[in-house]
Write a protein that binds this DNA or RNA. Structure first.
Lengths: 214, 214, 214, 214
DNA sequence: TATGAATGAGCGTTCATTCAT
DNA sequence: GATGAATGAACGCTCATTCAT
């Protein structure tokens, strides 16, 4: 056996291999994010990636391996908006920009959001370590910044962790619960301006509670 | 068919039937809310309800029927907090109370929250009609109240639908994404005071953005 | 256990018992003749007999027992037409009358015909003994009569067994293969005159081959 | 689905596929013809075809698909004898030859006969369309020929449809009701000469009724 | 690289039957 | 006499995975 598969660090040898892996992961992301792990079959992924099931299993030894690879691949996108929070920026502007980035991500990459939502809802069996490790460190890091901003009087006093949770929740809501949002708003699908309105509303709601008081 | 099963209108005839149906629905809620419809097997439900699979299927004719019964049974709890928003109350106090009720529900009935979260994440195949019907009507109704409050100058101008989404998102977050919250906060589990802190933070954040400005 | 069930010799104790047994057997005949043994469920029989499955199983201990009782009950009707062949009658008239009786039975009791057809097609697991015993004796008996008629010059020489088979086949065809007959004739269902035409055609076809030649 | 299965148009790609499909269909014909659709299990077919149930389902997606494939495959054999009736031949000789072909088929392919018998007995759920379509057209076609023969005085006046039914019934009887024939004749099994005797008797019986009269 | 062939475990469901009342 | 409750075996089918080429 000389299979190339090592999903968590996908060594892309040839052009074909790289392309196939990309197609598999794209198909898998789409399906896993819509139907969950159990609700998705290898056959479906293979069909959507336009290759035979056997060939797919040549690249990834198991369904689980595909799933982990998809999670891994999506993780960076998911963490980036928070990571970009600039400690040297203007607090309110920084937070507003963070909200904007998150809403934008919900619009352009809702599958990623749903993938993690599903994973976490089910107890995060695969990424609990990531949550307690890298994610916690990142959040703690940014929380310290926010706390400093409050201490400096540039931000109203606020529990930074709960603030971050609030931003996550409100922004990801438009990706994870899209069908509910659409149903309640009476729309077929949410367009670009709907997300703009959402970003606007969220920002206005949260920013007032953060504005430093005299 | 001699089976008594008719879950959506659970006419509980005998003691035994009532007890068994309750046990089944409790077990099913627990499992469906964690693993979703596809991720849960009848065997698991039966085992958790401490009865044979055959006996379970004597009470509910199919997995789908159990699922719908669980959804149905949970729906009222889920809608109640918003329904209780009093049009004659003091706006800010009403909204703060609504937030408190929702956080409380996340604490006491996280499975219900996760059940709907999972269902909606996967496209709400079973309750799309409820979302577009009863739920939309309820939300539209309450949105009108909020809009009136704004018009009367008792509340800052705000898009009422997005406000409701924000409240849903922030409060349900503590049920749906509990493991993430715990991981980031570095806790084993969230206690009563954690939820109190959450309610506090959410209220403070949102209420400022809603306070009528001179 | 004091169940009354003894299907092969159904002792009818009370009025209710007799009526229930009759209803069960009627329902079972209808269903077994249409869907076969495997294709019929106890639930269906019970529903059609308008009683609970449990109650049905109070009268007949098993599905098999019902089946045997139905066969037993139908057997006499099935054998009667041949038994009525009169050795002292006029040969051609006797045979014509036999054909008429069989066609009439196909019209009025097609279920019985189909029930035996199905049973025999599947190798007659339940009534092989009847075929090789009582039926064979009856046929041999009547065959001797026919053979005598031929010897006396009152009937063309003919193999009496094959003659009897031919009569069975042609007459029962209209019960057993009714849907095919209807499809080929382009009719929804066969009426009384269709059976009359069939009896006529069969008689004419066979009788000429039986008419004694000078 | 990567499966090759498409039984109704069995494109036999590889050697292995062709061989396996043949084995499956042979096993299925044997079992379906004896026990009907409901009375046959996939497990039985698989065992008789000497392969695992899973592998069988790799070639045919469902039990129904196997059944339809078997019917389809058998249909031509079943229709051929009548189709071969030559409008330009000598009427009595043609009909005698038709009888001979049908009896021969009952001898060499009794499973095919029983398969259709079972299917039709149970209401022809799968092939009703064939009966009302292709079969009806074929029969009507040949009936017209027979009617012409009668009109030309080369055949006694006879209802051609009922004549065809009579031939079907008498000849197929020896396949469909073989166990009864054997039981009544007191034989273990029917040999070649038994079928010859049957063909002889049937021909003699019917042909006299068809001989044109002066 | 890629595919076809094969398998075993498991899933949702049906159904005959048993048990208790 | 009659019913409700319960069960185990089996059935059709799905699906992840392995093997051979």
């Amino acid at each position: 056996m000389t299979a190339p598969a090592n999903a968590l660090a996908p060594v892309k040898r040839t052009r074909i291999q790289a392309a196939n892996q990309r197609r598999i992961l794209a198909a898998a992301l789409d399906l896993f994010s819509r139907f969950g792990f159990r609700g998705t079959t290898i056959d479906q992924i293979a069909e959507r990636a336009a290759m035979s099931k056997s060939n797919l299993l040549y690249y990834f030894r198991s369904k689980d391996e595909i799933y982990r690879a998809v999670l891994q691949q999506t993780l960076d996108d998911w963490l980036q908006p928070l990571a970009a929070l600039d400690p040297d920026g203007e607090p309110l502007a920084e937070i507003a920009a963070y909200i904007r980035r998150k809403v934008e991500l919900s619009r352009t990459a809702p599958e990623a959001s749903r993938l993690f939502a599903t994973e976490i809802l089910q107890g995060a069996p695969e990424i609990k370590a990531v949550l307690a490790g890298p994610l916690k460190r990142l959040v703690d890091d940014k929380a310290a910044i926010i706390r400093r901003w409050s201490a400096e009087g540039r931000l109203a006093p606020v529990d930074p962790h709960h603030l971050i949770f609030a931003i996550w929740a409100t922004t990801q809501h438009y990706a994870d619960f899209a069908v509910q949002v659409q149903a309640v708003l009476g729309k077929r699908r949410n367009g670009r301006q709907d997300y703009a309105a959402a970003a606007d509303a969220i920002t206005r709601l949260l920013i007032e509670g953060l504005r430093p008081r005299p």
